[in-house]
């Protein structure tokens, strides 16, 4: 009896917390398909009077949605390729090769994580401009080919768990270090690479300050930044705003449900915010 009462209390607490956390998202999803009139006249009724899927088409037509989407995919895709390439190499250098000063240099890499982005923001901006990359997606993608401290750290931790005998055997078979890295260690580290790729994709998809700083031509805006422009000019058309926000969020939610496990594993090993 006491046990049942405790279970009931546990469910009650979990359920009320779940309602509080889910309500904002549910309310957004439901309201995105309400007719415009319902949101202004009767904003607190939960069920849509009519399920207006047209809102999504209207919102997409009110801005260059598919161009923004294409830019976002280019940016996120380029970021994933760039960071997987550079971070795998660096992590391999720190985890699987022995060289003098390695641990010192690795300590330096860890220290860079403590540096706030504000400190490097201005010189970085001027440097990118100097290199002629201003107002192109390359300004945001090129730096990812030069590594990211968090991702290198995460991959290095994983690479260290792979038995050294495998590398030795591969070397005896005539593989170069490059070959050992990409044909032995990388394939054995798929979970870690997946986690890094996932985090990088989401970070690039969500990034707002980067595009704001480096892009000036609306044709080049990714969704995160384009959406903000849309918000400021359509602030009175709530149904379109919500529909646009839902279309922007949905790919991330889908990714989350597909890869829930590597998501949570990645977060709990690095404490990294996606």
């Amino acid at each position: 009896m006491i046990h049942d009462k405790a279970t009931f209390r546990a469910h009650l607490l979990l359920l009320s917390a779940a309602v509080l956390f889910a309500a904002p998202l549910v309310w957004m999803l439901v309201s995105a398909v309400k007719p415009a009139g319902q949101l202004t006249q009767d904003p607190y009724s939960f069920w849509p009077r009519e399920w207006r899927w047209q809102n999504f088409a209207d919102a997409a037509a009110a801005m260059p949605f598919f161009r923004y989407m294409r830019n976002s995919l280019l940016l996120a895709g380029g970021t994933v390729v760039g960071s997987l390439f550079s971070c795998t190499l660096a992590a391999y250098g720190f985890a699987r090769l022995r060289w003098p000063g390695r641990d010192l240099v690795f300590g330096l890499l860890i220290a860079t994580m403590l540096l706030p982005w504000h400190v490097t923001m201005i010189p970085r901006f001027l440097l990118i401009k100097e290199l002629g990359l201003y107002n192109s997606l390359a300004a945001l993608i090129a730096p990812t080919f030069l590594g990211d401290a968090f991702s290198i750290f995460l991959l290095r931790q994983f690479f260290r768990t792979i038995p050294e005998e495998l590398s030795e055997a591969a070397r005896l078979d005539g593989l170069t270090e490059w070959g050992v890295c990409w044909r032995i260690v990388a394939p054995l580290s798929k979970p870690a690479l997946l986690t890094v790729g996932l985090f990088q994709f989401i970070a690039a998809w969500n990034d707002f300050s980067g595009p704001m700083l480096y892009l000036s031509d609306p044709k080049k805006f990714p969704l995160a930044y384009g959406l903000e422009q849309f918000v400021s000019s359509y602030s009175d058309q709530t149904h379109l705003l919500l529909a646009a926000a839902v279309m922007f969020t949905l790919p991330i939610l889908v990714l989350f449900f597909i890869a829930q496990k590597s998501f949570m594993k990645g977060v709990s090993t690095t404490g990294l915010k996606a």
Partner: peptide
């Protein structure tokens, strides 16, 4: 359910 809001993009969360 508890984890989901932390992956909602900041821009969308701000609008919401």
């Amino acid at each position: 359910i508890f984890f989901l809001p932390s992956v909602v993009p900041t821009v969308a969360a701000a609008v919401l």
